[in-house]
Amino acid sequence: MKNKMLSQIVVLFLNFLISMALLMSMPQTAKAEDANPPEDSKNRSIGISTLQWSESLKITQSGTSENEVANYSGISLNLRKDMSYPLWGWFYEGFIGQGQANSGGNTSLNYQKDKLNFSIFGVHSGLFYQLSQQIRMGLSLLAYQRNMDWNSATPGVSVESISAFNLMPLIDLSLSISRDFAFYQEIGPLNSEGTFWKLGFAYKF
């Protein structure tokens, strides 16, 4: 309970820090003598995202198997490079992260787990259309490898994750909220259990 509250406070504090950084990096009102490089030259970014998704688990007990759903929630650190042209562009990104997962309560088998730690790493690449200098929309592919052991302390109950490696399409919306910061919103269909969300802020350099 304290860890969850601490996580919430950390997230709110991170939001506060990012907001304060925004205050010191005003939206674009470029002056002729502004020495900052043009927008396109800041084509690298480092950022933090929240990841939310669900996967299937296969619970087996006494020869009976049922599918359960597991919910994953984590934070990733992203490194990204964009290639921009007048109307379009493409990007590639690598990320690593960690989080916690919960599962249980949806089968007749006795299995419930919460706050299991996982780590994740992956790559993400796609194309975008430049609606404006500040707004990009596009499609991408994201692949991730999730590392975690779903275990069961109950004798005779085994748990198998359907797939720790996944590849999915995403739709992307990128908003440059200042010369130095961007807000990314990415969502896509992961599997029958639902969507993969990746939302975050990045510092451009």
Partner: peptide, 9 residues
């Protein structure tokens, strides 16, 4: 997102 429970979208 709930402890000890999985939720479908």
């Amino acid at each position: 997102y709930q402890e000890a429970t999985g939720h479908f979208d």
